[in-house]
């Protein structure tokens, strides 16, 4: 460990930096490690502007952040906090906030924006180039397109793409040449922003997979729970204000079904029984042919 060896002659600015980081770490209940490696400067500035009021973002060297975290964990007697360093990655930064980890994640997620894919990167999805004019005049771009396998030609004085084409599949590496072409076509297949590496709150460290909430899934679960409760209440006849009417209706429908099936006429089911017999008569009349029918039934 380089730091261990150089402990006694550590540069004063580093000590200051670690102290500043420690102050930040102690300032809030929720501490997040985020990854901002891939975020271009322009976007980063936009994001910082957006989140400024809700959280403090501080970049530093990993070694210094690690040291600050470990020292805070030790000073506060909180070994769980020290585990945050396990989530550190290159390009990490610290966020201190009072926003709960789930809200923090949502806020950061919503602040992401589309960006061009870089050469050498893995395509995050199938990248498709759409047919149509590129708006560019004839020139070397035409051969650049062709070189990466995009069918292009001059059309009405501009370079046009002849058909939709998936130029790289999800998971494949985007070549340097293709990246340049996609950028020129203003195709932004990646989303960049601050990715959560780990968030500490109250003794628990949350990772992205913990924090990524699928609201649809929750809605589905709520519906399933409600339906289950509704069915159980009705089927086991445990009346509640939400189900008592349905229970009454089920009992009535049971009685009606048995009355009709047995042709035992009651004041509530006379119509249904007579109607059923009539409908059957009409159905059979339909099979009987005109000669077998009286005037009323001929149609």
């Amino acid at each position: 460990m380089i730091e261990a060896k150089s402990e006694h002659k550590i540069a004063p600015w580093k000590i200051e930096e670690v102290n500043a980081l420690k102050e930040l770490l102690k300032s809030s209940n929720i501490i997040a490690l985020i990854d901002m490696m891939e975020v271009p400067a322009v976007q980063l500035q936009e994001i910082r502007d957006k989140i400024r009021d809700q959280m403090t973002l501080k970049m530093s060297r990993n070694t210094l952040m690690k040291r600050a975290i470990e020292e805070v964990a030790e000073e506060t007697g909180n070994p769980e906090f020290a585990k945050l360093v396990d989530y550190m990655d290159k390009g990490a930064a610290i966020i201190a906030t009072e926003m709960n980890p789930f809200k923090l994640y949502k806020t950061l997620d919503e602040s992401k924006s589309p960006a061009p894919v870089k050469g050498g990167a893995i395509a995050p999805c199938d990248i498709e180039v759409k047919a149509g004019s590129t708006g560019m005049p004839p020139g070397p771009f035409l051969s650049e397109l062709k070189a990466v396998g995009i069918p292009a030609a001059i059309d009405k004085g501009k370079i046009g793409i002849k058909e939709d084409k998936i130029v790289v599949k999800e998971g494949e590496v985007v070549s340097q040449k293709l990246a340049v072409v996609l950028s020129a076509l203003d195709i932004k297949p990646v989303t960049v922003g601050l990715n959560v590496l780990g968030v500490y709150e109250d003794g628990v460290i949350y990772t992205e997979s913990d924090l990524k909430i699928d609201e649809e899934e929750f809605v589905g679960k709520i519906q399933k729970a409600y339906t289950s409760a509704f069915n159980l209440s009705v089927n086991a006849v445990i009346p509640t204000s939400a189900t008592v009417e349905t229970i009454v209706q089920k009992a009535f429908n049971d009685a009606k079904a048995v009355s009709v099936e047995s042709a035992f006429v009651t004041d509530k089911t006379a119509d249904a029984i007579l109607g059923k017999a009539y409908a059957q008569m009409i159905a059979v009349a339909g099979l009987a042919g005109d000669d077998a029918l009286d005037e009323d039934l001929k149609g």
């Binding site: 709960n100 949502k106 929750f218 709520i222 519906q223």
Partner: peptide, 19 residues
């Protein structure tokens, strides 16, 4: 925590009505 956070954005009454 996840439950409470998730339900903040969910209209339970509406979900139930649909169910």
């Amino acid at each position: 925590k996840a439950l409470v956070a998730a339900l903040e954005g969910v209209d339970i009454a509406e979900a139930i009505e649909k169910a």
